[in-house]
């Protein structure tokens, strides 16, 4: 990913900070001009909760080239504690741990590395919750 693109969306990638519609509550990962669901124009910045539960997951076997080093990797649909659903890579799990309803928490990880000389792109992933 080109550097300005990665950089623009750091608040969401690092901290799950986005914008929620004041009218219908829809969450937006990138700053919108207008709500994508109800077209309301009042949106407020919100930091999503960092814990939730796994709704569904899969292990991706056919890896796009950006993800060779973590291949095979897991993608989960996570329902956060406030009900927002987000897609995330899962990390630090034993395969036998993954199940629907598993409590998970956000962690800060390397997402993609642009070769030997390019930028390291960081972002959120989710792992089994440590209590």
């Amino acid at each position: 990913m080109r550097v300005p693109r990665y950089w623009r969306n750091i608040p969401f990638r690092y901290r799950l900070v986005g914008w929620r519609c004041n009218h219908c509550g829809t969450f937006h990962q990138e700053k919108p001009i207008i709500c994508k669901r109800c077209r309301h124009r009042e949106l407020y910045e919100v930091e999503l909760p960092k814990t939730g539960k796994l709704v569904a997951y899969t292990i991706v076997q056919s890896t796009p080239k950006e993800f060779n080093l973590v291949s095979p990797y897991a993608i989960g649909l996570v329902e956060l504690d406030d009900g927002t659903r987000i897609l995330a890579q899962l990390t630090d799990f034993r395969e036998d741990e993954l199940r629907e309803g598993l409590r998970v928490e956000a962690v800060f990880r390397k997402i993609r590395v642009d070769g030997e000389q390019g930028i390291i792109e960081y972002g959120y992933k989710f792992r089994p919750l440590i209590e």
Partner: peptide
């Protein structure tokens, strides 16, 4: 893990 480095662990 392969997705960790000193920076990610500093953040955690």
């Amino acid at each position: 893990a392969p997705d960790e480095d000193a920076t990610t662990m500093a953040v955690e």
